[in-house]
Simulated assay, not measured.
Amino acid sequence: MDTDFDTVVVALDPDVSDVAAERLLATAIEVAGPADATVVLAYVLSGEQFIDTAKRLGHPDASRDDIDDVLADHERLRSLAETLAAHGVAHEIRGAVGVVAEEVVAIAGDVDADRVLVAGRPRSPTGKAVFGSTAQSVILNAPCPVTYVAADGQ
């Protein structure tokens, strides 16, 4: 098994809780840090979320093509990027507008990712039997191995 990592993608969207985001970031630092790999924070918004976020961040006329410019002003992503930088981990932010699983898989392909990290969400005991549509779709369709990081309490 190849243990060399150049690029690790962290799947994020507005529905990922702060706890889950912190666990994803801790895992990314564990994996990418020793390998001197780059972490790509892949942040996906729906069309409506993009419009709302762009307006809130002072980009009222932004189009989907401006996603990376809009996300450069996103507080949560700046905080995550600062944490990576404090740990000496190279990183970049890639934004997308669309269906989370599809866009994360596309970003992983675009950056030739060696690993994708995806978070789970709290679920009932029955719900735990199936990861959930977003995580499951990323696991089944990613062009590289996927690490499922359970949310707190799972």
Score class of each variant (00 low, 15 high):
D6W: 01
V8Y: 00
A11M: 03
L12H: 01
L12M: 08
D15F: 12
D15G: 12
V16D: 05
D18I: 13
A21W: 10
A21D: 04
A21N: 07
A26C: 13
T27A: 15
T27I: 10
V31N: 09
V31E: 14
G33A: 11
P34G: 02
D36A: 14
D36K: 12
D36G: 11
T38N: 05
V39C: 00
L41E: 11
Y43E: 09
Y43P: 08
V44I: 15
V44T: 12
V44N: 02
S46A: 11
E48S: 12
E48V: 10
D52I: 12
A54G: 12
L57G: 00
G58P: 02
G58S: 12
G58Q: 07
H59R: 06
D61K: 07
I67C: 00
D69M: 09
D69I: 08
V70W: 11
A72V: 01
D73S: 11
R76W: 00
L77G: 09
E82H: 11
L84I: 05
A85S: 14
A86V: 06
V97R: 01
V97C: 07
A101S: 15
A101P: 00
E102C: 11
E103A: 12
E103D: 15
V104N: 02
G109N: 13
D114A: 01
D114T: 03
D114C: 05
R115F: 13
V116D: 04
L117T: 09
V118G: 02
A119T: 04
R121F: 00
R121D: 02
P122K: 09
S124I: 03
P125S: 05
T134E: 14
Q136D: 05
Q136V: 03
S137V: 11
I139F: 07
I139H: 07
L140M: 14
P143H: 06
P143K: 06
P143L: 09
P145K: 07
P145N: 05
V146E: 05
D152R: 09
G153S: 05
